[in-house]
Design a protein around this nucleic acid. Structure first.
Lengths: 340, 340
DNA sequence: CTGTTAGCGCTTTCAA
DNA sequence: TTGAAAGCGCTAACAG
């Protein structure tokens, strides 16, 4: 018969004995002090302090059937965009019992599905996933999990549960409109490996220009390589080679926009006089660049904050009024597109 | 007497019954298939598949006393530097049973200590912490935990257990030497909020220049604000104001270096003719910049990979030969400091 | 190679 | 308001 010793750390039973109460009373006291009489409360508090008791979350989770864990599935760990949101999520869970568990899907639907299964095996309290293009399988898992789920960055037709983000179609249109407003007419598009949100912005650009009969496929430069500032330079170089009369470019993100700017500088092309440039995300560097770079500001921190807010609300039993939040976007006009 | 129903998902007992074996056999089979006979193995595998069984890590952790979790404490979630290493850590644990748990210390020793307690309450298999400046309290916790611990990014005198990183003093010296080699002599320093590693690089710069009697405190521009490209511009502007004869700057990181470059461009100061610029980390954009920016390359991905390697080794029982790994650094010379 | 039994640390259920 | 007993899903220990 197996006698096993614990980790050496104080357990709830140790605290209970030390305080001369039942273990369950200590348990109650940890979760809701108001359920324990004043007298016992202070005694237990003292014991906790003296024994340096820290509850074991996995034992709690096992016993209660729910873990104080919020799972977050993001497509990339080294993309500053997601990092901003992760930071918000961490910040917002700071004074809650919830722990954040991060999964890296690498933009791969199968990996997402796999991680989802693993996460669900831990009975997380809620899940946050990026985008609205989960596989059917993932959607099924998410629905059956019966916990709050937030899709972030993007809003669409049929949210699985809740969603917090923006319309990338509208953002794509806004970029084109801004350039047209500023008098640019031969507008190119630079993009590296596309994610669904980039695809939708690109598609909006295509549609818009086609409707104006000024779409020219020569001006769309794509690559399957991962996005980077260097790739931005490369794409700009190609564009200038293929379609030298292009007078402005929409970039899939700010890294590419910065690379485009550098390439223009290297080739002596003046921005915005000879070439307008607009990026997406409005990273901090866009303002610092010389000339400063126009971009679409997306509030990535807020997206994370709101996602957690919604989750906590639901976890507290408040039925949410609003299942979908449009965080919008703002076009920040700077020198790189200011012609008038 | 409490009758409770589980989460609805299949448990190990379900699988055992379905396969007509004992639960423990299923357990063994999951952890080491070679310990189970061929015959039962295939039967169990079938049951697992049919019931879609996924083991519950918290139950396993509770029963075995050790969680398949590697805790990682980093000072910032939105710093690309740490993101690169996190990615490496995630990648390296990909095909292992280990899960990565991230804690954000916000460069705060107390927060680090707090998170450490929380993490340790979960019996992690190993821990990774940043730097070598943990509080006494944290060091004690780390030592008593009796698990593999890796300090990363920096190597120093008394590693708690293992460490993987580089000497920031040597890096600081290398930066100064490079500039001197290139004929720069009035060398400034730009830095935002300092972390211990930046401090050591700055200190190395001070020492070096003092020994050459060419240290001038006017040329050291510091701020407590968080680092950013915009701050880089601001610092450069200040430096030019205070010490206009400065002919080169060492930047605490690449963001600041990029800002410094933009400020020079805005002021019509030619780089490197009138101003040399060197950054730290060698982010991808440094090569793309125009003119391209010299920087110190630190292999942040490798640091993460090696940290996990070391941990896995130890977890597999191999006693490590090497407790400290110097991942070194490489000065990547580019246009921004190339005078000869 | 396989199974039985006890128990990880906590919470639920039920009773006082 | 408090507690005793049972059990969450799994594995260690021991036995066969």
């Amino acid at each position: 018969m197996g006698k096993r010793r614990g980790s050496g750390r104080a357990t709830i039973t140790d605290v209970a004995e030390h305080a001369g109460v039942g273990a369950i009373t200590v348990s109650r006291m940890m979760r809701d002090p108001s359920k324990v009489s004043e007298k016992l409360r202070s005694r237990i508090e003292k014991s906790i302090r003296e024994l340096q008791y820290i509850p074991d979350p996995k034992a709690r989770a096992l016993a209660s059937g729910r873990a104080d864990v919020i799972g977050v599935l993001i497509p990339s760990l080294s993309n500053i965009i997601f990092a901003d949101t992760l930071r918000a999520i961490h910040d917002s869970t700071q004074n809650t019992p919830y722990q954040v568990l991060i999964g890296n899907t690498r933009y791969d639907a199968e990996e997402e599905n796999h991680l989802l299964s693993l996460f669900l095996a831990q009975n997380p309290a809620a899940l946050i996933v990026v985008g609205i293009d989960q596989s059917d399988n993932s959607i099924k898992l998410l629905q059956e999990a019966n916990i709050p789920v937030v899709q972030i960055y993007e809003i669409g037709q049929n949210p699985i549960d809740m969603s917090v983000g923006l319309s990338h179609i509208a953002a794509g249109e806004a970029m084109v409109e801004h350039l047209l407003d500023q008098g640019f007419s031969k507008i190119g598009y630079l993009a590296a490996r596309l994610d669904p949100r980039m695809e939708r912005r690109l598609e909006a650009y295509r549609k818009k220009l086609k409707s104006l009969e000024s779409f020219d496929p020569k001006r769309v430069i794509l690559t399957n390589k991962a996005s980077s500032v260097n790739i931005g330079r490369e794409l700009m170089r190609q564009l200038i080679g293929c379609a030298p009369d292009t007078d402005a470019v929409i970039c899939a993100n700010d890294d590419i926009a910065l690379g485009a700017l550098f390439e223009c500088q290297a080739q002596g092309i003046s921005v915005p006089e000879q070439m307008g440039i607009i990026g997406f995300n409005d990273l901090e560097m866009m303002q610092a660049a010389y000339p400063s770079l126009t971009s679409i500001r997306t509030d990535r921190y807020k997206i994370g904050t709101l996602a957690v807010d919604k989750i906590l609300q639901r976890l507290n039993g408040d039925e949410t009024d609003q299942k979908q939040i449009d965080t919008g976007f703002e076009l920040i006009q700077r020198d790189s597109t200011s012609r008038r």
